[in-house]
Amino acid sequence: MATGKYISYLRVSTSRQGASGLGLEAQRTNIDNYLNGGQWTLLKEYVEIESGKKDDRPKLQEALQLCKATGATLLIAKLDRLSRDAHFLIGLQKSGANFVAVDMPTANELTIGIMALVAQEERRAISRRTIDALAAAKARGVKLGNPDNLTIAGAERGRIAGVKSIKSKADVFAKDCIERIIPLRAEGLSLHAIARVLSKEGILTARGKAVWTACAVKNVIERIEGL
């Protein structure tokens, strides 16, 4: 039975997953199930939206610092998802903060250390395989890269493709959010009230922020109406 102070850390790989709640809700459910019963306090929840390929984990560092400052235990929703993330594991190991992985509650510093070493070696192996494959392709006479991309026309094509990609992602984000906004509008809620609901439910904005504004809600609605 859980007792004491806790801080939860959730992570998803894309802003779309964060905005739609895909993955986050499952992780919150796992944490709620772990905390069910007992005398406990959840001080704060940290949500990280970052690819496993990147080493930057600002929210994790904030969570670990708060754990050490308050004496709270860090709750990790899905350690098995992060078992190949060497940076995460090493940071967790070196932090000195108490932690519990709700999907692997028996994990300890020794477990984390072994997983970190395995993850580091796997990353090195992947890097070596990539370098070897490129060298073999070059030896066969394969030209790496596209010279056309270095021309003005190529740069313009890249710019247009980038704009289309950004628009496409914004459209997908709006479609994910509008399903929650429509019933709130049907209830007669104002844009400000809808923003408060979305913020309270932990749905992130297109910029990955935890707090919605009336303007952000308006932008989603107008984007959907323009499709």
Rank of each mutant, 00 (worst) to 15 (best):
G71S: 04
G71K: 00
A72D: 10
L75G: 04
I76S: 04
A77R: 04
K78V: 01
L79Q: 02
L79W: 02
D80V: 00
D80T: 07
L82F: 02
D85F: 03
A86L: 05
A86K: 06
F88Y: 09
F88E: 03
F88V: 06
L89N: 00
I90F: 04
G91R: 08
L92A: 09
Q93N: 05
Q93S: 07
K94T: 12
K94Y: 12
K94P: 00
S95H: 11
A97Q: 14
N98P: 13
N98G: 10
N98L: 15
F99N: 04
F99R: 02
V100A: 02
M104W: 04
M104Y: 02
M104N: 02
M104P: 03
P105M: 05
A107Y: 07
N108T: 15
E109C: 09
L110N: 05
L110D: 07
G113E: 02
L117D: 15
L117T: 15
V118W: 00
V118Y: 11
A119W: 12
E121A: 08
E121N: 13
E121I: 06
R124I: 08
R124C: 06
A125C: 10
A125Y: 03
T130P: 07
D132S: 09
L134D: 03
A137I: 07
K138S: 03
K138F: 05
K138Y: 03
K143S: 14
K143T: 11
L144C: 05
N146H: 03
D148P: 02
N149W: 11
T151E: 06
T151C: 08
A155N: 04
E156F: 11
R157I: 03
R157Q: 01
R157V: 01
R157C: 00
G158D: 01
I160H: 00
I160L: 08
V163F: 15
K164L: 14
S165I: 00
I166W: 08
K167D: 14
K167W: 14
K169T: 07
F173H: 07
E179A: 12
E179Q: 15
A186F: 06
E187G: 01
E187Y: 08
E187S: 10
G188N: 08
G188L: 14
L189F: 09
L191T: 10
I194H: 02
R196D: 13
L198Q: 08
S199Q: 11
S199T: 15
S199I: 08
